[in-house]
Amino acid sequence: MRAVVLKDFGRPLEIEDVPDPILGTGEVIVDVAAAPVLSYADEVFSGARRYLLPTPVVPGCGAIGRVREVGPDATRLKPGDWVFCDPTVRSRDDALMPDIVLQGWSARGEGGQKLQGYHRDGPFAERVRVPTENAVPIGDIDPADAGLWCAVNTLLIAYGGLLAMELRAGENLLVSGATGNFGSAATLTALAMGARCVVAPGRNEAVLADLDRRFGRRVAPVVLTGDAARDGEAMRAAAPGAIDAVLDFLPPSVGASVARTAIMAVRPYGRAVLMGGVGMLGGEDLALPYPWIMRNLVTVRGQWMYPREAVAGMVGLVRAGLLSLSHFAVTEFALDDVNDAVAHAAANAGPFRLTVLKP
């Protein structure tokens, strides 16, 4: 089969003929119809992000495709089924603390690297081998819409945070980092789940205006000034009532004080979920006040990716018409043009923009 190969970090991606993946028990072979090219893929392939990804490797992170072969232990999947290839692969020998790898993308820890040694190659290829549980049915789709369905890859991460905080219909949510890829996806998903209002703070006034245009009165944009006291008051005032929960998607380039101001806008008994990159480049610690958390009974938790059942829930939101993928603008590239696709994804990063590779 034809595949994209990263020979080494810092080198252009190459197209090669590589052996077809070999099916094993507990696995599925999928014909890849479309695979998202993440906006920061250039930073991964250049080595700037220092991801644990052994080379040479067929990269990629998630895909939409059709089942080609199933293993002997598959009871529901069959050839021809449309599936989302979930890149979040979990080890099967520790249900309490499974090791996790993003297939074709990254690993963490010794266990993750061991798992990556087997589930290594990703979906920038004509075919990909994934664990059976990672080939999640999405129902029949028009093949022309496969690229659009790649939006699920981004939406699921936002959905994971909303599930972690147990967002309820009618609640007011604050999305810290609402003008970014994941923050805007969180806004869309929260509204689909029935949020009364999403408070959307940010500095990019054009993106805030676009969120207002798309979602109307159910989104409350707040232009940040950099003054913590003033910004905190503005966020609380923007909501039609107390802010029940905060979801943080701020990137590593943003200081901890910005995240802290947003989190502390939550009401007593409220919840905050951290999914961003604050502190990953060094700098000030988040430093939430102990007395404030304790006396206000605030719950703060971290969340990375999403639980397995989230994929079925996300597909349900789309199929029910509660969440429209039409918000995403998709630009598609052929396999031979993968380096152009990576450059395009970097240059066109932003809310509701999607770059897709179509093997």
Rank of each mutant, 00 (worst) to 15 (best):
L325M: 06
S326W: 05
S324F: 00
P268F: 08
E309V: 08
G282W: 13
V342Q: 00
W292H: 10
G282F: 05
D285A: 15
G270C: 11
V338S: 03
Y290H: 13
L317P: 01
D337P: 06
I293E: 05
G321F: 12
L317I: 05
A329F: 00
V342P: 00
F328K: 03
A312I: 03
R301L: 15
L297V: 11
A272W: 02
F328M: 04
M314T: 12
G283V: 10
R271Q: 10
V311C: 07
L281F: 14
N339M: 03
Y306G: 03
M314F: 09
L288P: 09
T331V: 13
W292A: 14
G321W: 02
R319M: 04
L325W: 00
G313C: 06
E284H: 12
D337W: 07
D336M: 11
T331R: 14
F333G: 09
L286Q: 05
A287P: 10
W292N: 05
G302I: 01
E309M: 01
G279S: 11
L297G: 04
F328V: 07
L288G: 05
G279Y: 12
A287G: 09
V338M: 08
Q303H: 10
T299D: 10
L286V: 08
N296S: 14
M275I: 03
L274R: 03
L288D: 08
A312H: 08
V342N: 04
V342K: 06
G316V: 03
A329D: 03
E332A: 14
D340T: 10
P289A: 08
A329Q: 11
G321H: 06
R319Q: 13
W292V: 15
E332R: 09
R271H: 01
F328Y: 14
Y269Q: 08
R271P: 00
W292T: 14
G316L: 07
Q303R: 15
V278E: 01
G279F: 09
M280D: 09
L317A: 06
Q303A: 14
L288K: 06
M305F: 14
N339D: 15
R308A: 12
G279D: 11
G316K: 10
V342G: 02
V273H: 07
L286Y: 14
D340W: 09
P268A: 14
R301C: 12
P268Q: 10
M280H: 14
G316W: 00
P307F: 13
Y306N: 01
G313R: 08
P307E: 03
W304Y: 15
M280G: 09
M280F: 07
D285E: 13
L286S: 10
S324Y: 01
